[in-house]
């Protein structure tokens, strides 16, 4: 299968507000894609629809050829904006948890990454700083050998050194069968690692193009284009 994600006329209403309006996309495998837009533009809504945390109002959405459900959750690895591992477990118990539920979880890779950051397996999650918890969560998500990675604001609110580490982790884990969708508003930091960019404004698709095309056709960087499109 060449496409990893396909959606047609995907729409989500929250009561009277429209979160996502008539979105149609085809995302191939082996790409790193930036989902760009200001806060409240619909990025998180789209990601939540892909992970099954929201159900669409209308339209279709398939990942790996399956509609959203247990089958897609097996092949999608999701990093939400907020940490979800704020509980009583130790790091090694979290590794066990992921191994139990996800067949594609590579526990050795996770252990290596944790060791590189000097995070002990016996460390308790509730005693960790916010930054360390975020790194543990990133490691758990990237240690899965998934077909689609959905990273919601992975570098927002993070110091530059950690940002570099995250970007390096993303590049190191790149695989041809998988695609990574990164939602962010910090574009200049990640522009060089993106293949394609999807710009969303107020729930509508503004642009879906390769980053090289944008530079060649419009002669501007993605960052400049974003500022132009979303200027206040």
């Amino acid at each position: 299968m060449d496409s990893i994600l396909q959606c047609q006329n995907l729409t989500k209403h929250y009561g009277s507000t429209c979160g996502l309006n008539d979105l149609t996309l085809d995302i191939p495998r082996g790409r790193i894609i930036g989902l760009l837009g200001p806060n409240g533009s619909g990025k998180t809504t789209f990601i939540k629809l892909c992970t099954g945390l929201l159900v669409p109002t209308s339209g279709t959405l398939t990942i790996g050829g399956h509609p959203i459900g247990t089958e897609t959750k097996k092949i999608v690895s999701y990093l939400p904006e907020h940490t979800y591992i704020n509980n009583w477990m130790r790091v090694k118990e979290m590794l066990e948890f992921f191994s139990d539920f996800y067949k594609d979880f590579n526990v050795d890779k996770a252990r290596d990454m944790l060791q590189n950051l000097q995070i002990g397996l016996d460390d308790k999650l509730k005693n960790m700083s916010k930054g360390t918890k975020e790194k543990v969560q990133l490691i758990l998500v990237m240690s899965r050998e998934a077909d689609l990675y959905l990273l919601d604001e992975p570098i927002g609110g993070v110091d530059p050194a950690a940002r570099d580490y995250i970007i390096k982790t993303i590049l190191t884990n790149y695989q041809e069968k998988a695609s990574i969708i990164l939602s962010t508003h910090l574009i200049s930091e990640i522009e060089s690692i993106l293949d394609e960019a999807i710009l969303i404004k107020q729930g509508n698709l503004i642009l879906h193009d390769s980053v090289d095309e944008i530079r060649e056709k419009k002669g501007v960087s993605l960052d400049a284009l974003f500022r132009e499109e979303f200027k206040c």
Binding site: G52, T70, K73, K74, V76, H82, Y84, I85
Partner: peptide, 12 residues
């Protein structure tokens, strides 16, 4: 916040 983990597990 744990819900973000729970509801993305591949279970019904």
């Amino acid at each position: 916040n744990e819900g973000y983990l729970t509801f993305t597990l591949p279970v019904k």
